[in-house]
């Protein structure tokens, strides 16, 4: 008797609650979709504007093979894209081992004390330091202090410093995401710390580490400020020496000491010129720079997919 009364009293209420929840869901989905549309169309507008603006130069093969020039129609980006690729190689070569190493140390080895806390706070804060400050540091330390000059090596070093915090933080997060029972399984078999990290933790964490690394490199590829600060040239009419040679030892590192320019600097240089034709070049260079970033992200996605399939 009491039960019947209660159920009659509560049933309509329940329907009301379910309906209200469903309405809230719909409203939230609507808001989400509109925000997405606004964001995507802004991005699309920028990309389309660049492509349309740079089209005459984008379809011209000479644009990719010519050096910069006083004549806008002969000016190309060969020294810029070669420079960007070489600088990114140096950046990745320095930042990935250092960043992953530091992340592994902080997460797995560091004792929990005030020194570690101090290092952690500093790493997090470094991620927020404006890039031009890194440029000033590099100017003082690498160029005037170590005498490295305005070279590809210096640019790679400064960009590596810039993205180091990103790689450290994402490495730590990826490692922290590895379940405890996986570690206990390894330790339970008698593995020492380094075996556990090398054989089980890092392989399981590598897709997370990779994502962080690519995010970092994608930031580095577009940076102009710190590279301008260290005095990269804007007008380079030659390529760095080739890293590969026909005589033993077949590879050389002279290119590290070569002057260079990179895509964002080339763009900046063209944008700041008064002639409208140069602005077309700038737009075209912008499209190529974006494509380079996209390509890098694409490689990351492919690698991640591939690594995951290997694991499964």
């Amino acid at each position: 008797m009491v039960n019947a009364e209660m159920s009659q009293a509560t049933l309509p209420n329940l329907t009301g609650i379910v309906d209200a929840n469903r309405r809230t869901d719909l409203v939230m989905a609507g808001i989400g979709i509109s925000v997405l549309i606004v964001a995507m169309s802004l991005l699309a507008a920028v990309v389309i504007d660049l492509i349309v603006g740079g089209w005459p130069r984008l379809i011209n093969p000479d644009f990719y093979l010519n050096f910069p020039s006083r004549h806008p129609l002969q000016a190309g980006i060969v020294s810029a894209w070669v420079g960007t690729i070489l600088v990114m190689l140096v950046t990745a070569g320095i930042a990935i081992p250092l960043g992953v190493g530091a992340g592994v140390y902080l997460e797995e080895y560091a004792a929990r004390n005030w020194i570690t806390d101090f290092i952690e706070i500093n790493v997090s804060n470094l991620a927020g330091v404006p890039s031009i400050i890194y440029g000033l540091l590099a100017l003082g330390l690498f160029i005037h202090g170590f005498g490295l000059g305005e070279t590809i090596l210096t640019a790679g070093l400064v960009l590596a410093l810039l993205i180091l915090p990103v790689i450290i933080v994402s490495t730590r997060e990826a490692i922290r995401g590895i379940p405890l029972d996986l570690r206990e399984a390894a330790y339970g078999l008698g593995a020492d710390k380094w075996q556990t990290v090398r054989l089980y933790v890092l392989p399981a964490a590598r897709s997370g580490i990779l994502t962080g690394t690519i995010v970092g490199l994608a930031r580095a590829i577009g940076e102009a400020a710190p590279v301008i600060t260290i005095g990269a040239l804007t007008f380079i009419a030659f390529l760095p020496p080739s890293p590969i040679q026909s005589s033993p030892p077949f590879i050389n590192f002279e290119w590290l000491e070569s002057p260079f320019t990179i895509m964002p600097i080339q763009m900046f240089n063209w944008v700041s010129r008064p002639q409208a034709e140069f602005h077309i070049n700038a737009a075209a260079a912008g499209v190529i720079l974006m494509l380079m970033t996209l390509a890098m992200n694409g490689i990351a996605i492919w690698l991640r997919y591939h690594l995951r399939r290997q694991i499964r």
């Binding site: 379940p179 206990e184 399984a185 390894a186 089980y200 392989p203 399981a204 499964r312």
Partner: peptide, 8 residues
């Protein structure tokens, strides 16, 4: 262990 925890 309590939960199966094979390596990936």
């Amino acid at each position: 262990f309590q939960k199966p925890n094979p390596f990936p």
